[in-house]
Design a protein around this nucleic acid. Structure first.
Length: 489
RNA sequence: CGGGGCAUAGCGCAGUCCGGUUAGCGUGCCUGCUUUGGGAGCAGGAGGCCCCAGGUUCGAAUCCUGGUGCCCCGACCA
């Protein structure tokens, strides 16, 4: 068991890191807080990208690319925005290096100081709105629906692979609209796109909700979020979509002429999901044997293992089978390494999260069967080779659904409703705190006080919450409905 | 930004307190033989600026001074 990973029970944090490292998803790099995404990890991100990109295109968005560097002055145009990001920006101050006159290698050339420093984008609203000013003059230019796939940098003090790194990959959508209603609709539409993606493709159930004033994006009117529950009972903000109102249009003076030839400021939205989703995917489904991937997100869905080792006979059959599976659109590989034994390969393929393993041996060929093992439930059974492609195709769907159902069940089992602060405290203090629904008086003051006392934050006010009168668990003041608290990543 | 830890073979580590031949163990890697339906066994082999710089000493992975880097835990944030 050379590659055994720490169990979740023993140390959840170590378990997560073990999976990331031992499934070869990512590694720490020479740069603090920045990760190297390895081929296995990047393949998952690529699947996310491809699917999301299709969905964005489907909703009328087009891709573009804006610069990595942003003039420092741009960031300060929107007051709340700069306050939100100023503390975590990387700043470029010089543009040239020179040989150290003292022989210490290269040093920054002091004569190459920039007139205006550049910041490395922590998000691109400012540079994009500066550009949109040139793109928009008339209501006929609207709506403008732009997305970009990019890297961003936020100088994080505490990082974890995928979940929070100083540099990360993401997509950021930026849209401009003629009316407030349209901008709001756009923000909500994207929230639903994100939720659909999370649930149908990642098999990760999410709560759809709106952030409190305290938790919203710096510069937004409202932030819509999807929140997932991880296996340790902590919430993960998996995607956000912002209604920016006219805040950035005003800051960057972006106006359009409406049909009556009157000038108005443009209405905006922005939204993003990042490589953090890979972390969420890992923590939603994986177990103590390693990574578990839902079939739709698995770079490899089926692996065929020759037993006990490759032979001409087995290779021929396996390749034939691969062709049939590929023809059905199934991503399949053949593990024809003749050095490792089957047991090793089983463990290795489980660690990597491949949803289905097909074990093919001499006995199978004689009997016309094949061994089908599913990663999610760790069961295996012998199946007739005849009709195996249909069986595998159906099983992939079943696994996808099973993982989602399992995650929904976990979330339900770990969601509680409380009415008093004592109940609240007890719920949050459990080993798996989960989502805790409670009344809140709507003030930032109370929210912060609760956070100080319990470390729990308001994840969202659910879109589908039932309106009911109640009293705040802390202040006792009236509340119009329960909000969702949790400890969060 | 505080607190702690670590830096020695691809990876994981011991050795450092108490300086001393050729720096060691596990794993991985290479070769060969035997094995082979759940992480194989034996034999042989390759692989090291012991984080960097200075100092002490006949002699430094080890002691002293000064750096650098990364990780983990908290506070802040996607």
């Amino acid at each position: 068991m050379a590659k055994a990973i720490t169990s979740r029970e023993e140390n959840y944090s170590e378990w997560y890191l073990d999976i990331v490292k031992k499934a070869n998803l990512a590694a720490n790099s020479a740069v603090r807080g920045c990760m190297v995404i390895k081929p296995n990890g990047f393949a998952i991100w690529e699947r996310m990208q491809r699917q999301l990109d299709d969905m964005f295109k489907e909703t009328g968005h087009v891709n573009a690319y804006f610069p990595l560097f942003i003039p420092k002055s741009f960031l300060s145009r929107e007051a709340e925005h700069v306050e939100g990001f100023a503390k975590e920006c990387a700043v470029v101050t010089h543009h040239r290096l020179m040989n150290d006159p003292n022989g210490g290698g290269v040093v920054v050339d002091p004569s190459a100081k920039l007139e205006e420093e550049l910041i490395v984008r922590p998000t691109s609203e400012t540079i994009i709105w500066h550009t949109f000013r040139d793109w928009i003059t008339s209501y006929r230019d609207l709506p403008l629906l732009i997305n970009q796939w990019a890297n961003v940098v936020r100088w994080e003090l505490r990082t974890r692979l995928f979940l929070r790194t100083s540099e990360f990959l993401w997509q950021e959508g930026h849209t401009a609209h003629a009316t407030a209603e349209e901008a709001l609709e756009e923000a909500l539409k994207i929230q639903e796109v994100y939720a659909t993606f999370a649930e149908e493709y990642m098999a990760m159930p999410v709560l759809r909700g709106v952030k409190t004033a305290n938790e919203r994006f710096a510069g937004a009117i409202d932030t819509y979020t999807i929140e997932a529950l991880m296996q340790d009972g902590k919430a993960l903000q998996a995607g956000t979509s912002h209604n920016l109102g006219q805040n950035f249009a005003k800051a960057f003076d972006v106006k359009f002429s409406n049909a009556e030839n009157q000038e108005e400021y443009v209405w905006a939205s922005s939204w993003g999901v990042s490589t953090r989703l890979v972390g969420g995917l890992i923590m939603t489904h994986s177990d103590d044997e390693g990574l578990v991937l839902p079939p739709k997100m698995a770079p490899v869905q089926v692996v065929i293992v020759p037993i006990p080792k490759p032979s001409e006979e087995l290779n021929t059959k396996a390749k034939e089978l691969m062709q049939e599976l590929k023809a059905r659109g199934i991503r399949v590989t053949y593990d024809d390494d003749d050095k490792q034994r089957p047991g090793f390969k089983f463990a290795e393929n489980e660690l990597k999260g491949i949803p289905i393993r097909l074990g093919l041996g001499k006995r199978d060929l004689d009997k016309g069967t094949i061994e089908v093992a599913r990663r999610d439930e760790k069961t295996k059974e012998s199946q007739p080779l005849d009709g195996i492609v249909d069986h595998v195709a159906n099983l992939l769907e079943e696994i996808q659904q099973n993982l989602f159902d399992r995650a929904v069940r976990f979330r339900e089992e770990n969601s509680t409703h409380v009415d008093t602060f004592e109940e609240f405290q007890a719920a949050i203090d459990r080993d798996i705190p989960g989502f805790v629904y409670a009344h809140w008086d709507g003030t930032t003051e109370t929210e912060l006080k609760i956070k100080e006392l319990t470390k729990a934050t308001i994840r969202c006010i659910p879109n589908d919450r039932v309106e009911e009168t109640g009293s705040c668990i802390l202040s006792g003041k009236p509340s119009a409905g329960k909000v969702v608290f949790a400890k969060a990543y």
